[in-house]
């Protein structure tokens, strides 16, 4: 694959898929136009993302996505029961999460994942990119929370996006 002609192959595929979804019809014309757009848009917006996005282990990424989706479902039931029980028994806390990740894409994916899963919202990234401030809705043991996030979400992301 030519780097100059196809700077972001994944973005090309995603854009083509989004186009097909948007038109809501699967026929050759739509797919060809989608691929054309997927080829042209990365080329003309190259200045916004100069670095290529490496995806090392697509299977790990898929497994990670599955884990996150099930966690979103579970987390929602937990948060729903917490809200219905009322504000009294809640123990909210701010937790500092030390980061092992280096690449900005991986950090932002981790922050997004944290926002979507068990009762936590990522609040702020330290300017040195080595800590993430996380607010938890109800926690007894902040250290256990940090450990869970690290091995459940951070480890697979590190595997996929960093050598």
């Amino acid at each position: 694959m030519n780097r100059r002609l196809f700077p972001h192959p994944w973005l090309t595929i995603t854009l083509a898929l989004v186009w097909v979804l948007l038109v809501n019809a699967l026929n050759p014309g739509t797919v060809i136009l989608g691929l054309l757009l997927g080829w042209a848009i990365p080329l003309f917006t190259l200045r916004f993302w100069p670095e290529p996005v490496p995806v090392r282990r697509p299977l790990t990424l898929l497994r990670f996505l599955a884990v996150v989706l099930t966690d979103i479902l579970i987390a929602n039931f937990i948060v729903a029961t917490l809200i219905l029980r009322g504000p009294k028994p809640l123990k909210p806390a701010f937790v500092r999460l030390p980061l092992d990740l280096k690449s900005e894409l991986a950090i932002s994916l981790l922050a997004n994942t944290i926002c979507l899963t068990p009762g936590t919202v990522s609040a702020e990234l330290s300017p040195a990119h080595d800590h993430l401030l996380v607010h938890s809705l109800n926690t007894d043991d902040p250290d256990a929370l940090v450990r869970t996030i690290k091995q459940r979400y951070e480890a697979p992301l590190k595997e996929v996006f960093e050598p």
Binding site: I83, V121, L137
Partner: peptide, 10 residues
Amino acid sequence: YTRLHGPTKA
């Protein structure tokens, strides 16, 4: 901060 959790997830 606790209010933020309801709308973003549920």
